[in-house]
Amino acid sequence: MIKFSDVVVRYGAALVPALDGVSFEAAEGRITAVTGPNGSGKSTLIRALIRRQSLERGSIQIDGDSLDSLTPQESARRVAVTPQREEPAFPMTVKEYVALGRFPRLGLWQSPGQTDERAGLDAMKKAGVAEFADRRTDTLSGGEWQRARIARALAQEARALVLDEPTTFLDLAHEMSLFELLHSLAESGMAVLLVSHQLNLVARFADSIVLLHHGRVVGSGTPADVMQAPLLERVYEWPLVVSRDPAIGAPSLVPLRRLSPRL
């Protein structure tokens, strides 16, 4: 479980903090989605979790232990994170890339053994990249690369998985299969924390949603709690309607056109 308690993060001497007293938890067996407009502090949350940004106040706990009390490798064994930005300097095969997910589980001298190979293979199968395991990372399409990154995170065999905008570059089918994969991972007991702009997909798959605005939590709860038109209109500063999708029963958002009288 990942728990953020009253987290305040400030970039340099900025007057307004990027995160301002954020508290919520991503529990085991659930998909927790963090959403919000650009610049609302979503990625800062991930940067704080991987220690690229220090906290001005508050704490982050992993399985009840404060992040500060864990070594970076220990936290990487507990939480697998795929950050938004990643560009390997030198191309390698997908298999080699996924194997890097075993880094937190191996000492510097330790060679990857059978367990590590099996974990890599399992991760590639789950993320649907096994069929191009021998291809080089610089030949992958955007969607294939995104899935390879998820495979690397799965190879860490952590109990929690954190993904920052994982559906960028994914087409409809891959987007759906990714969310189904996350759903099954949560069902198997993992804590899945997801940062995403895809409100409709999040509303359909997430167990709980945290809505950020200007670094503050302005809404949290079940998709039905958060997917309220007045709240979302205020946060996104855009007219919209929220209805219940007749086919699946999940809340569904449709942004309206501002200038056209005919929606």
Partner: peptide
């Protein structure tokens, strides 16, 4: 050579390296 495996991870970028447990 001893620290080479850290270099493998650092070559992915600061954020992925930090996510994999390297003190960048």
């Amino acid at each position: 050579v001893y620290w080479a495996r850290e270099i493998d991870v650092l070559a992915l970028g600061d954020e992925p390296a930090a996510a994999l447990g390297v003190n960048v």
